[in-house]
Design a protein around this nucleic acid. Structure first.
Lengths: 95, 95
DNA sequence: GTTACATATGAATGTTTATTCATATGTTTA
DNA sequence: TAAACATATGAATAAACATTCATATGTAAC
């Protein structure tokens, strides 16, 4: 092994995108920031399920959160997400 | 739902990259074509494990195979793989 | 045809993981 | 401070999946 497990890290990154719930969440956040409840409503998911997935996305620095009163708004952490997503879509459409 | 599950397809694509064994296989195939045994040797994996993973990669049209005598050589199906991999690496390195 | 080699495959196992349920934490308003 | 609302979290469950083992299929040489 080398000093850092580059393949493990890469696989972990892609693993995050390898779930349709997370993909759908990220696609929403591509337009604008969302609160947890609104996300859950629009995606027809449980508040709990959305919260769990958002935690994973945040731990991996793909989204960030901002509190406003009782609500917490989530948004994309940077623009890598959008490039990775569109990269994937290109491949899909050309298959 | 729409006619086709675009998010499911996208997630499925990324799921393939979400495993370090497959990532390592793909990285080898980035240089040149490989037979199953040589891949297994160099990656320190079982012949069976490599074969199983190659099947998944082939089913998803990420690699293709060519028979030469007793051996079967695998190579990348197109250059999407390389772009997706480098996209991921960029993100990793900037974290 | 039989032996040796290369790859594929099916079943079993263990691990990972997404979701659900119940409840806890945090925030605002009355 | 109590009640209502928004989100987070821990445990449990079920499903997905990578690997191993044993064996099957396919190919070449003898």
């Amino acid at each position: 092994m080398s000093n850092t497990d580059i393949w493990g890290d890469l696989a972990d990154l892609f693993k995050i995108f390898g779930d349709s719930s997370r993909i759908r969440i990220l696609y929403r956040l591509l337009e604008r920031e969302y609160s947890v409840n609104v996300l859950a409503d629009e995606l027809d998911m449980t508040q709990s399920a959305v919260s769990h997935q958002l935690k994973i996305l945040k731990m991996n620095k793909l989204v960030r959160s901002r509190r406003e009163g009782k609500q917490i708004f989530y948004s994309l952490a940077d623009d890598h997400v959008s490039t990775i997503l569109s990269m994937g879509r290109e491949h899909i459409e050309e298959m």
